[in-house]
Computed example of a mutant assay.
Amino acid sequence: MKSKLLLVSLALCAALPLASHAQQRRAAPVPHWYAGIHGGVNDVKDWSADVNFGGPTTAGELRLDRGLHFGLMAGRRTENARFEVEYQHGRMDIDRMTLGGFSQAASGKGSYDALTVNAYRTFEVANRTTAYIGAGIGWGRVKLPTLPTISGCNCFRGVSDDGLVYQLRLGAEYEIQNNQHLLAQYTLLHVPGLGSGGAPSVEYSSKNINIFSIGYRAGF
């Protein structure tokens, strides 16, 4: 009986430092620099436009399918926050265009690029699992291709423009090893409108892009 009590006491003494270390680690993550990558899909659905014939304006629209998205980021993790610089690129497939009462199939690819500075508030929700919510602001560029004529009009010309971008993000990450994380996140990215000159001219509205991605982040 005494030997069993001695063994239990020794086991508890050995476990206490480990438990204390784990508790301290969960309560106060060590600040560190990090870099990461993420990839996934965007969901745009449609993009409205106004076509101007030198006087009257006709409403138009592009219908888009889901496209691929990826991003690179680097920043600093503190006890309850993250601050980073991020570059993102995405592509969109166009499968239909509409002008007034006319609609027809189309084929083309659009793209967007965004460079932002982001800030997140982090929340520990379980052992090794952290949720985060935040926002970012920066500069971006959008490109849309030249599409076939519709009802005899070369209305949807290729356009490219840049401007202010901003985003909101919600995600969670799981620490697979020390300072190495797998993450899943949702991003709402706002990109600027764009337009072409000439007659007829086309003006595309600014757009919110839904993005779902998974990724990896490593500290150093």
Results as ranks from 00 to 15, higher is better:
residue 135 A to E: 01
residue 187 T to M: 10
residue 115 L to T: 11
residue 194 L to Q: 11
residue 141 R to I: 10
residue 172 A to D: 00
residue 195 G to N: 10
residue 131 A to Q: 00
residue 103 S to R: 12
residue 140 G to H: 07
residue 146 T to M: 02
residue 101 G to S: 15
residue 154 N to G: 14
residue 156 F to W: 06
residue 97 M to D: 11
residue 130 T to P: 00
residue 132 Y to S: 01
residue 113 D to L: 03
residue 145 P to D: 04
residue 92 M to E: 04
residue 99 L to C: 05
residue 150 I to R: 07
residue 177 Q to F: 13
residue 132 Y to F: 12
residue 130 T to W: 03
residue 144 L to H: 10
residue 165 V to T: 14
residue 123 F to K: 02
residue 161 D to V: 01
residue 186 Y to R: 06
residue 165 V to N: 11
residue 180 Q to A: 15
residue 143 K to Y: 12
residue 187 T to D: 10
residue 186 Y to T: 03
residue 184 A to K: 02
residue 137 I to A: 15
residue 145 P to C: 05
residue 178 N to I: 01
residue 183 L to H: 10
residue 167 Q to N: 14
residue 146 T to L: 06
residue 102 F to E: 04
residue 115 L to Q: 04
residue 179 N to C: 03
residue 165 V to L: 08
residue 131 A to H: 00
residue 128 R to H: 13
residue 146 T to V: 02
residue 166 Y to I: 06
residue 98 T to E: 13
residue 119 A to M: 09
residue 93 D to G: 08
residue 110 G to S: 05
residue 148 P to F: 05
residue 166 Y to S: 05
residue 99 L to N: 07
residue 102 F to G: 00
residue 135 A to K: 04
residue 105 A to D: 15
residue 179 N to H: 14
residue 142 V to R: 11
residue 171 G to W: 11
residue 155 C to A: 15
residue 117 V to T: 10
residue 92 M to T: 13
residue 130 T to R: 13
residue 105 A to T: 12
residue 186 Y to D: 05
residue 169 R to F: 00
residue 109 K to G: 08
residue 190 H to Q: 09
residue 123 F to T: 07
residue 157 R to P: 00
residue 175 E to C: 07
residue 144 L to K: 09
residue 93 D to T: 10
residue 158 G to P: 06
residue 145 P to Y: 07
residue 182 L to K: 02
residue 111 S to H: 13
residue 123 F to W: 12
residue 176 I to W: 15
residue 118 N to V: 03
residue 161 D to I: 01
residue 155 C to T: 06
residue 103 S to P: 03
residue 145 P to L: 08
residue 186 Y to F: 13
residue 162 D to G: 15
residue 156 F to D: 05
residue 109 K to M: 06
residue 125 V to T: 13
residue 185 Q to M: 09
residue 106 A to F: 06
residue 175 E to D: 12
residue 163 G to Q: 08
residue 98 T to F: 01
residue 186 Y to L: 11
residue 148 P to H: 07
residue 108 G to K: 01
residue 151 S to C: 03
residue 173 E to M: 08
residue 150 I to H: 05
residue 182 L to S: 01
residue 194 L to G: 09
residue 118 N to D: 11
residue 138 G to C: 07
residue 100 G to Y: 06
residue 117 V to I: 15
residue 93 D to W: 04
residue 147 L to T: 08
residue 104 Q to W: 06
residue 104 Q to R: 14
residue 115 L to D: 02
residue 101 G to I: 12
residue 145 P to G: 08
residue 117 V to W: 03
residue 177 Q to I: 04
residue 135 A to D: 01
residue 112 Y to D: 03
residue 118 N to H: 07
residue 158 G to A: 04
residue 171 G to F: 10
residue 154 N to T: 08
residue 99 L to S: 07
residue 160 S to C: 04
